[in-house]
Structure formats: structure tokens, C-alpha cells
Simulated assay, not measured.
Amino acid sequence: MSATIKDVAKKAGVSTTTVSLVFNNRESRVSKVTREKVMAVAKEMNYYPNHFAASLVTKKSHIIGVVSDSVNIFSAQVISGIVKQAKVRGYQVVQVSSSQENENDMEYLNIFLNQGIDGVIFPHSSISSLKNLESGFQTVIRSGIPAIAMDVIINGATSCADICDHVYGGYLATRHLIDYGHRKIGVISGPKDYISSIKRLEGYRKALDEAGIPFDPSLVYMGNYKLESGQEGLPYLLGKGVTSIFAFNDMIALGIYKAIRNYGLSIPKDLSVVGYDDIFISDVLEVPLTTVHIPIEDIGKRAAEELIELIEKKHPAADLEKCEPVLMVRASTQRL
């Protein structure tokens, strides 16, 4: 027979109310020591709270919906953070995958809206178009369910995109190439409407300006944070005579790695490449990628915290200090 809340309370030497307060993460005078004791006993007894039963009373399901692109490595790490933080706060996560080619991404919202979830998170690059994303948010908002947008600003929705100092990150990447003697530095960016793209480009331009290098808009190839952006942007920028490329994420950089073989060139001998994000495969490539590290899982945790605060307190979590990107210098860049 499965353990009950009464069993946990009895073994921990507390009341069932105390156990309930701990698992629902409600504001109370329950001490940290007592909380840890209750959690330890619950784990030992393999006890999990019945959120369905609780929802009949609280009108809350304690379930968060996440619409994601299952083939996106960055999003996978973000979602890992969402799941971990949701668990800490007593929530479960239900995930559905969104195809980048799907013209009807918002149909997935019906799954959530019909299941009585408490809120929805749209991670980076999870929806095939900004138009679909805006439409989806209006659908969610009309239903009265809180929603979090990541990397875009949508009317009526809370955005937690500006968690990291991406201007500084873009500056670090570009400054590194400049310090290595590069003057003709190409860019393959993310979508123009994404906050991360806008901020990284701002950092790129700041570093150029500081070094007295004129900004050349023809050296900026508009991508979409996908592998294909690197493959398609490389021949364009090679035609412009660049000696290095700042890829706005590591997936774009991987596309460059894949495509450069077609031209009989190599990294970094013929072309220096800097990525962004520092996804887990960046340092295990045959030529480890120089990239800008950001705490990807922490971004997911912040998104979950923002949403839960909206659910429980009707307003976003208080602004936290932005994380500071760190340049990870590896073998994909060399001095001219």
C-alpha cells in the first residue's frame, strides 16, 4: 500500500497540515529543518502528494505546460531547468513538441487548455513563427491562464528573455576575434525579432566601434538559430571575404563546421569561429568550439519561477541580477 500524508506526518512527528504546507511550498513558519525532515521522510517512504485531489479544493492543478521543439539542444537544457525548479515548487511539467514546419502550432495549446493546467511556458525557438506565437498567447490570455515568453516580447504576456547580459556576451565574442587580429568579422544571427539576437548584435557593434572598425551590415547574415543557418550563411560570408564568424548560437556554429568541408577549408586555419551558449557538445568536437558560456539550465529555472509567481501571486517574480556571460576560449579561433 502506498504511503499517505498521515503516514509521513506520523513518522516525521509533525501534523498533516505541516506536511501539506511543505509540499505546496506555501508561505508559513515551518522551519528549514522541519521542511528538510519532512522531505527526507517522504523520500524514504516513496510518498508523492496527490495534486489531483488537492486541485479539487484549491482549483489549481499544479501542472505547468511547456511547448517545445524537441530537436533543439538549447531548449532541451532550458526545459531541464524548468522541470527541476517546478519540482522544487511542487509542480509537474507536461510537455508537447512543436514542429518547426507546422503551420498550426497553436493547436497544441488545446491539449493544455483542456487539461486544466495552471500556466504555459514557450521556451526559445519553440514556435515556428512570431505570428503564431502572438496568436497563441492571445488564446492563452483569453483563457485566463498565465504564460511566459522566452526571447520575445508579446503584448499581454510576461517575458523572461533578458536574464543574461547578451550585449556583454556579444561584445566578448567579437572582442576576442578583434584581439586575435581579425578585422573582417562576419555574423550569422538569430531571428531579428528575438531579444537575444538584438542584444548580441548590439554587443558586436559595440566591440567594432570601440576598435575603430566600421560596421558593415552586409557582413550580417540573418539566420534562425538552426544548424541550417550555419550551412547557408557560410558561403555568403566567405564570398564577402571574412576571416572569422561570430555565430549567435552553437547550433549555427555546428552548421559552419559541417559546411566548411565542402570548400576544402578548415577551422581555425582558414576561418575562426566563435559560438554562443556553450551547449554540452561544444567542447567535445574534433576542434573544440570557442564560445560564450551562459547558464542555460538556470534560464529554465528562472522561467519556471516567473510563471509560478504569476500563478500564485498574480505578478512576476522580483527582478534578479542578470547573469554575466563568460568567454570559453578553445581551439576554433587563432591569431592572424
Results as ranks from 00 to 15, higher is better:
Val140Gly: 15
Pro123Thr: 11
Gly144Glu: 12
Tyr194Ile: 07
Ser68Val: 13
Thr158Asp: 00
Ala211Lys: 02
His51Met: 13
Asn114Thr: 15
Cys164Thr: 00
Glu134Pro: 08
Ile121Thr: 11
Arg175Ser: 11
Ser20Cys: 08
Phe280Gln: 14
Asp69Val: 09
Leu201Cys: 03
Leu289Lys: 01
Leu320Tyr: 05
Asn104Cys: 12
Ser196Pro: 07
Asn72Phe: 05
Leu289Phe: 01
Val67Lys: 08
Ser75Ile: 13
Val292Leu: 07
Ile252Glu: 03
Ala9Cys: 06
Val71Ile: 12
Lys206Leu: 11
Phe52Ile: 14
Lys184Asn: 07
Tyr276Ala: 00
Ala3Trp: 00
Ile256Arg: 06
Ile279Gln: 14
Ser75Arg: 03
Asp209Pro: 03
Gly223Arg: 01
Phe122Cys: 08
Lys37Gly: 11
Tyr257Thr: 10
Gly170Thr: 03
Glu324Ile: 12
Gln100Tyr: 13
Lys199Phe: 03
Val152Asp: 06
Tyr236Thr: 02
Ser31Gly: 13
Asp209Cys: 05
Leu208Lys: 02
Asp165Arg: 03
Gly13Val: 12
Leu109His: 15
Pro288Lys: 11
Asn155Ile: 06
Met39Ile: 14
Ala211Leu: 02
Leu172Trp: 00
Ser55Leu: 00
Leu113Asn: 13
Ala86Asn: 08
Gly90Asp: 12
Leu336Ala: 07
Ser135Tyr: 14
Gly300Ala: 08
Ser28Asp: 09
Pro49Lys: 08
Val273His: 00
Lys206Cys: 00
Leu177Cys: 01
Glu309Thr: 06
Ser31Glu: 13
Phe137Val: 15
Ser129Trp: 11
Leu238Ile: 05
